[in-house]
Nucleic acid binder design. Structure first.
Length: 154
DNA sequence: GCCAACGTTGGC
DNA sequence: GCCAACGTTGGC
């Protein structure tokens, strides 16, 4: 089993949106970055655990846990000209972008803020990719030692 | 293949 | 709103 962190803007699709979905499950569309795509297409497996992270908000941080319930399949929003994620270079026959489905496990009792994690960047969270300089990846792997430590902060 | 221009992400 | 980081595009 592997561990991941996925970023989303709460105004666009936050943890409460996920909680309100049927089965508390949603497909993770709109990722248009090759590194993130490769992880969703090739590496994320059913049962993998996910930190749900809120970005671009007052208190950025981890707000919930989710799990992968469907492995990589074509992101059909790339094929809808009316969708903001439309990409004419992708097609159903030759899809360029992929997504997974995730299901809410639970919301955290409190937000584990980026600020709090940064303060640990030279200690227990040294090397955690989220804290690296200029990291903009919206999907990233989380090593188990970091996963366990961060959950322990809750 | 290089690299300048441009666009996006995301914290602050 | 600003701006650093950095990925992508396209001319050459």
């Amino acid at each position: 089993m592997n561990y991941w962190l996925m970023k989303s803007e709460p105004d666009v699709f936050g943890i409460d949106h996920l909680a309100a979905m049927p089965e508390q499950t949603e497909h993770w569309d709109g990722v248009r970055n090759y590194q993130a795509r490769n992880m969703m297409r090739d590496q994320m497996k059913v049962g993998d655990q996910v930190f749900f992270y809120h970005s671009n908000t007052d208190v950025p941080g981890i707000v919930g846990l989710a799990e992968v319930v469907k492995e990589g399949y074509p992101d059909f929003t790339a094929h809808d000209p009316d969708c903001k994620y439309y990409d004419p270079k992708s097609s159903p026959d030759n899809p360029r972008w992929f997504m997974v489905d995730i299901k809410l496990v639970r919301k955290l009792k409190r937000t584990i803020s980026l600020r709090e994690m940064k303060d640990l960047a030279e200690g227990p969270l040294e090397g955690f990719r989220l804290l690296g300089k200029g990291n903009r990846l919206s999907v990233m792997p989380v090593e188990k030692e970091y996963w366990d430590y961060i959950l322990g902060l809750e």
